Amino acid sequence: MLIAQITDIHLGFDPDNPAEFNRKRLDQVIGMLCNLDPQPDMLLATGDLIDRGDEDSYRRLRNALSVCPFPVHMCVGNHDQRDTFLAQFPDVPTVDGFVQYEVEAGPLRLLVLDTLEEGRHGGAFCEVRASWLRDRLAEQTDRPTLIVQHHPPIEVGIEWMNTHPEEPWVERLRDCFTGHPNIIGLVCGHIHRAIVSSWCGFPVAICPSSAPQVALELAPIDPDTPDGRNMIIADPPAFALHWWNGRELITHYETADEHVMLARYDEKMQPLVRSLLAERPV
């Protein structure tokens, strides 16, 4: 099973521009995903779908995603507004007003979580949401389950984007995960960089954004002293591909930029391919 992921689209950052930079980047990523061979079985869009929570941007997002030949499953991030989002995507399931739902995906089960607290940049996960997650995890204890959300529950080293490991929502989420080894991983966004880690023994894969990326600056930051460091950079739009091989989840990161080809599979490369494949057990 092949699961594509895009995140942090921030459509509407330049709201009055019909040729918006972030829309061009989104179209570039979607075009590449639609032309992959094999095509993804589904696409996850993991929050910060738009930039200002406005209805028109969600409408343009719906238009951009309409070309996808595979199902698209979305969650909300800190730039989203639930009511406005649900007005444009009324078929997305909710639980007590939160955008949380289950996706049956062949051999896998996906649990999409809502980590939005409107007005707050960082994550949130209240007892209502946690109760729903605990109930779902208790239902199929042997089923490989992938957790999907916007905010990562880990420190990433970029101080102005960090999550503190002792935040109450992180503790609550950790309690939900405890005792569920069938969780194969957590995929999220928010940081605008490709990052992999382990949290409480579970793999965490953070997807880079289709919008511009966050600069890799690991030095401490002083809120009282602007030091001129890079914060946002125009690196290429990017996405993730999560491949479930029946045993483990493998994550690949790719940019939607043009790639310079240095070697192709032709007669010159055929002996190498044959020898490599011959090493594998039949």
Rank of each mutant, 00 (worst) to 15 (best):
M261F: 06
A238S: 12
R229T: 06
V260P: 03
R247P: 00
L241C: 04
W243M: 11
Y253H: 14
F239V: 04
T255D: 04
E248Y: 11
M231T: 11
T255A: 04
G228H: 12
P237I: 10
H259N: 05
M261E: 05
N230S: 13
I233C: 01
E248N: 10
N230R: 15
D257R: 15
A240N: 09
I232D: 00
D257K: 15
W243D: 05
I250R: 01
V260T: 14
D235P: 07
V260L: 14
N245Y: 11
H242N: 06
D257E: 15
A238M: 07
A240V: 09
H252A: 04
A234F: 10
D235Y: 10
E254M: 12
I233M: 04
L249D: 02
L249I: 14
H259D: 04
A256T: 11
I232M: 10
H252W: 03
T255C: 04
L249H: 06
Y253D: 03
D257V: 14
G228P: 13
W244L: 02
A234S: 10
M261W: 09
N245K: 09
R229Y: 05
P237Q: 06
D227W: 10
R229N: 03
H242W: 05
T251Q: 03
P237W: 08
E258Y: 11
D235G: 14
I233D: 00
D227V: 12
A240E: 02
H242L: 10
H259V: 15
D257N: 14
I233H: 02
P237G: 02
F239Q: 01
I232A: 02
T255R: 11
D235I: 13
F239P: 00
A256K: 08
L262Y: 08
G228W: 14
A234L: 08
I250G: 00
W244C: 00
M261V: 15
